[in-house]
Design a protein around this nucleic acid. Sequence first.
DNA 1: GTCTATACAGAGATAGAC
DNA 2: GTCTATCTCTGTATAGAC
Lengths: 207, 207
Amino acid sequence: MNRKREGMMKQEAKEDVKQKILDGAKHLFARKGFEGTTVRQICDEAGVALALVSYHFGGKENVFYALFDSLEPGLLKETYDLTDPESDFRKFILEFVRFRMSEPELINILQQEVMMQSPRLEKLQEVMFPVWLLLRNILQAGKEQGQFQFESLKHTMYVVVGTLVYSRTSSFLEPLLESIPGASTKESFEEVVAYTTQYILNGLQRK
Amino acid sequence: MNRKREGMMKQEAKEDVKQKILDGAKHLFARKGFEGTTVRQICDEAGVALALVSYHFGGKENVFYALFDSLEPGLLKETYDLTDPESDFRKFILEFVRFRMSEPELINILQQEVMMQSPRLEKLQEVMFPVWLLLRNILQAGKEQGQFQFESLKHTMYVVVGTLVYSRTSSFLEPLLESIPGASTKESFEEVVAYTTQYILNGLQRK
DNA sequence: GTCTATACAGAGATAGAC
DNA sequence: GTCTATCTCTGTATAGAC
C-alpha cells in the first residue's frame, strides 16, 4: 500500500519533471541550437537540478530525441486515397500548416538540423520521411491525372517543400514590412492556409 | 629596404593564413553551426596553429563576421528601374539563384542564424536587407502595374523568400527521389533558374 | 607571423546526501 | 526522485619561444 502510493507519487513527479525538461529544451534548442544549448540552461529553464537530465534521459542527446518521439504529425491521420490528388493536396497543405503553426519550435529545430546535416538527422528523417513520401505520391498522382503540370518531380519537391517548411516564426522580414498597412496584424491560421494553398497550386500550373 | 620587404612578406603570409582560416570556418560553420564549431577545428581545417584565430581576427565571433564582410551580393549590381517589374523579377531570381549556388555555405549559415534568431543576426541583416527591400519593391511595383496578382504583400514576401532561399544543398530529400529516373543527375544552373522562375511567377498568378 | 604550452572558464556527467 | 558538490574533459584565449 505504502509502496504503491509512493510509486504513483514518483510516477507523477517524474512525468512532471520530464515534461518541464522537455519544454525547456524545446524552447532553448529552437533559439540556441543543439550545440548552443547547455544542460545547465535547460535545467534552469525547467527549474530543476542539473543532475536530472542525466537521470531521466541519460544525456542531452536523448532529450533531443525525446522531443520528436512524442511527435505524431496529425498530417498522416487523414486519409489520402489519391483518387483526387488536388483535394488530397489541399488537405495535406492544411494539415502541414496546422502542424507548423502548432509546433513552430520543432519545425525550427528540424530546419536547423537539416541545414547542417547533423548527425542527429537520421532519427528525425524517420519522423519526416512518411510525410515527404506522401507529398511525393500526391504530386506524382496529380501529374499523372493531369491536375498538376510540371516536368521535374525533383525540382517540384524542392520548391514545394521550401514553401511549406519555411518558417514564418522568425521575424527577420518584419522591419521591412512594418510600413505596410495591416502587415503587423497577426495572421490567422485560415489566412495562412488559404494563401499558401493558392500560391503552391498556382505554382504547379493547376488548370 | 629590409623592413619594407619584411612588411610585404608579412602581408602576403597574413592574407594567406587569414584566407585559409576563413575558408575552413565557412565550411565548418555551414556543417556544424557557429556554436558547434570550435576554434581548434577551424585551425585544424586550415592547417594552422590554434593561436592564429585570436591573432588575426580577435576571436571566433569576428571570424564569423569576416565571412560576410567580403560578401557583396552580385544581385544588386544589376539595374532595376521597376518600369517592367516582371522583367526585373526574372533578373532578380536569376541573380539570387546564382548567388545561392555560388555560395551555398553562406546561405546555409545565414539560414541557421535566421532560424535561431541569433545575436549575430543583426549584422547579417545589414547584408541582406537591401536584397529583401529590392524584392519588396519589385513585388509592389508589379502589383500596382497589374503584372502580379496577390492580396497580401506580407504573405507574398514570405512564400517567395521561402522558395528562393530554401537550400537544395542539403540532400535530405534524396533518399525519396532516388527511384525517379534522372533525379540523381546534377541539375544545372539554368535548369534551377528556369524552374524556380516558373514556379514563383505562376504562384503570383501572373497573367 | 607562427608556433607550443598553458591558463582558466565552462561543458556534460556522476557521487552521494537527503 | 531530487538535490548539491565535484570530477573530468574540452572550450577559448593568451604567454612566450622562435
